[in-house]
Structure formats: C-alpha cells, structure tokens
C-alpha cells in the first residue's frame, strides 16, 4: 500500500466529511442550541449573575458568532480524527468487506462503526443541549460515555474475530453474541445522573437533529473515502515473478 497516498485519502475524506458535519450542524442543530442558550441567559438574568443590557447582547452576539465559526473548525478536527480511525479499520478490513465498488465497502463498514460507536452509545447516553447537565458530574459523564463507546467498539472487534473463525452457517452466532454482550453492558452501565428540567420537546428536537447530523458525517466520510479509494487505489501491488 502506498503510505502517503493512503494517509492523504483518509485525512482528506475525514476532514471534508467533518466540514459537512459542521455545516449540517449550523443548519439543523444550531437553532436548538440558540434556544437552549437563550434559556441559560434568562436564568442568568433571573439569578442576578448577568444584566439584560445592550452591552450584554453586543458581547453575546460577538461571542456566539465566534462559537458558530468554531463549530465548523471543530467539525473539521473531529472529522479528521474519526476519519483517521475509519481509515485504520478500513485498511485492515477491506478484504473482508463485500466485493464490488469501494463505496459499497466503505458504506458497509461505516454503517457498522456508526451503529457500534455512535448509535448504541447514543441510545444509552443521548446528546444534550446546553441547560441540561450539572457541571459537577461532567467528568463522570465523560468517563461513562467514552467507556461505553470503548466497550462497544472493542466488543464489536472481538465478535468480528469470532465471525471470521466461524463456519458459514454459524456466523450468525457472532451477531447474537455481540447483541447479548452489548445488552448486558447497556444494563450494567449507570444511567446519566443528571435530571432534565428543560422542555423535553426542545431536548428531543435537539437529539433528533444531532443524530441526523452525525449520521450525515458517517455517510459523507464513507462516500468520499470510497470514491477516492476507487479512483486512486493506494493498494500497492508488489509483484514478484518467479521463473
């Protein structure tokens, strides 16, 4: 495999998909964030921690504009990061994925990684907008969230190894095994300790848009990497002719 080409394709596809993710968030998630932060501001005014003055709003608008720009930059960084992981897993698993066009392979892998690294953890620990979450518990929640992702991801990797070893008719057992494993983890892991006092309509709307936007990222990353892999094929064929 051509190392530099492989790195370039993986990083470019992750970066590009991250930009798409950031822009999607700006379009569909940001309105919910603005509403949630507006509630936080009202709480600040009510508690006397801030005053509802023109200077407050000038500073706030400038700050939020900066944060919204950061949304796209953070999308690029997170996209490159998750895209790097996707590239590693794809490089090792590409010969086990369904035959055919590279996009078919990358979409297959992306659907597995999306489910195990995002969807299942998301069901246990869904995204929350500002106003939800006690700062005192953020370290615990971070450990639980990352821990669940790691347990799900490594569990999927372990059952993939089992899948490879099983005979054709018994391969279904690997899926059953992962389902049983993640169900046990799901039940054993503690719930999010924070109560939600904000409107559930707003929280659920935010969660739905968050789910859609992350899904857009995984689809975009798979399509971009698949198309680039098909076109540039970084697989280096070292052919030795023995006469």
């Amino acid at each position: 495999m051509k190392t530099l080409l492989f790195l370039a394709l993986v990083l470019f596809s992750g970066f590009s998909a991250g930009i798409v993710h950031g822009l999607t968030n700006l379009a569909i998630v940001e309105p919910f964030l603005d509403n949630a932060i507006a509630i936080e501001n009202q709480n600040l005014f009510a508690s006397g921690e801030a005053e509802d003055t023109p200077s407050f709003w000038i500073e706030y608008d400038s700050y939020r504009t900066w944060q919204k720009g950061g949304q796209v930059l953070a999308g690029a960084i997170l996209g490159t990061s998750v895209g790097a992981l996707f590239g590693i897993v794809y490089a090792y698993s590409r010969n086990s994925l369904p035959d055919g066009h590279s996009v078919k392979k990358t979409l297959t892998l992306a659907s597995i990684m999306w489910a195990t690294l995002f969807l299942i953890p998301f069901i246990k620990y869904p995204a929350n907008p500002p106003t939800v979450g006690d700062p005192e518990t953020v370290v615990l929640r971070s450990i639980m969230y990352l821990g669940f992702i790691a347990l799900s991801g490594f569990g999927a990797l372990g059952f993939y190894k089992v899948y490879k070893k099983l005979l054709h008719q018994k391969k279904i057992l690997a899926f059953v095994g992962y389902a049983a494993y993640i169900t046990i983890i799901f039940v054993l892991m503690p719930p999010n300790p924070d109560e939600i006092s904000a409107s559930m309509e707003m929280v659920n709307g935010f969660r739905t848009m968050s789910l859609v936007a992350v899904t857009v990222f995984w689809v975009a990353n798979a399509i971009i990497l698949g198309l680039l892999w098909q076109k540039y094929n970084p697989d280096k064929k070292l052919e030795t002719k023995v006469s």
Binding site: H21, L73, P121, P129, V138, S210
Partner: peptide, 15 residues
C-alpha cells in the same frame, strides 16, 4: 468554548 457547539451536537458531555 471554541468547540462548545460541536461538543453538544456530537454527543459529548460538555458541562
């Protein structure tokens, strides 16, 4: 602060 919105949107506990 810069990554605040993406943290929330991507599902990370933020604060």
């Amino acid at each position: 602060e810069l990554t605040h919105d993406m943290r929330h949107a991507a599902g990370f506990p933020c604060h």
